[in-house]
Simulated assay, not measured.
Amino acid sequence: MMELLDHDTFLQRLAALFESSKEHGSIWLTHKRLIYEGAAITMGSVGGADGENDYPCLVRVTDGDAVKFSTTVNSNELEKFHHAYGTLLKASMTTLRKRDKKREKQRAEQVARRKKKMTEPVVVDGPKRGNGRRKRQRQLKAAGKQEESQRKAKQREEAANAKSASAP
């Protein structure tokens, strides 16, 4: 069950959650515009005296398991809250791991080599019988594998295109 807290308690509990998950664990933070049940979803033209609706911001925190709490921030309190919230986030996110760019580069190069190998045609040469027959057989097997991988890649691409075309 999600627990609704005031701003100060929310920030204190969030700081405690960051402290408890310093060694391991994840924390999910979400920000959403709060819409009440049955309220109109459209913004702008309908609403208050000056023609604009005032929607509070809902800030949620969870560790994915037992800890779940949130707070609502009205637009007139938003700047003050974000100042305190931003300060807390900057202070708490010092233990983030740096990206391993060397490993990412190696993986990108490996993927590029695989794609290049898949697109380069395999040349089948050599005698069908006698010396060099085994070499020719390996080349034929490699050509068959390459055709199969190209066919599978084409199917995946078509499925992805069909999925993106059907998505709104």
Rank of each mutant, 00 (worst) to 15 (best):
S20L: 10
R156L: 08
L78V: 00
Q12C: 04
G64K: 05
M93Q: 07
N53V: 12
A15N: 05
H24T: 14
C57N: 09
A165I: 00
L34N: 02
T72G: 02
P56L: 09
L78I: 00
F81S: 00
G126A: 03
E104V: 03
H7A: 09
E23C: 07
H82R: 07
Q146W: 00
P168K: 14
A153T: 08
A167K: 10
M93C: 13
M1Y: 08
T87M: 02
K141L: 14
D63L: 05
P127I: 13
T30M: 13
K128C: 10
E37C: 08
D6P: 13
S26E: 12
S26R: 14
R138G: 02
A112L: 15
R134G: 06
T9E: 14
L89G: 08
Q155F: 06
K80E: 05
L96V: 01
A142T: 02
A39V: 06
P168Q: 07
G86V: 00
L14D: 02
A142D: 06
E120Y: 02
R60K: 14
S26F: 12
V59R: 10
L78H: 03
T42I: 09
A84D: 13
H83F: 01
H7G: 05
L17N: 01
F81A: 03
Q106M: 15
H31M: 08
K116I: 14
E148R: 08
R129P: 01
E158L: 12
W28Y: 11
H24Q: 14
Q12I: 07
L4H: 08
H83P: 00
K80T: 10
A159P: 06
E109A: 13
E120H: 05
R136N: 12
E79I: 04
A160M: 02
G44S: 15
G25V: 03
E157C: 00
R97I: 12
A84I: 03
R60Q: 10
K68D: 01
A167G: 04
G126Q: 07
R114Y: 15
F10D: 08
G38L: 04
A84T: 03
L78A: 03
R129D: 12
A160Y: 04
K105P: 13
L14Y: 08
G132M: 10
G25M: 11
K163C: 03
L96D: 02
S45N: 11
A91Y: 01
R129H: 15
A66G: 02
K141P: 06
T42V: 12
A39Q: 14
A15Y: 09
E19R: 05
R113D: 04
G132E: 05
K116G: 14
T95W: 05
K102C: 02
E19D: 10
T87S: 15
S149P: 00
I41D: 15
F10E: 11
V111K: 15
H31E: 07
S70F: 03
L17S: 08
L14A: 02
M93W: 06
E23A: 04
D125C: 14
E23S: 05
G38D: 07
E3L: 10
A40T: 09
E79T: 07
K141V: 14
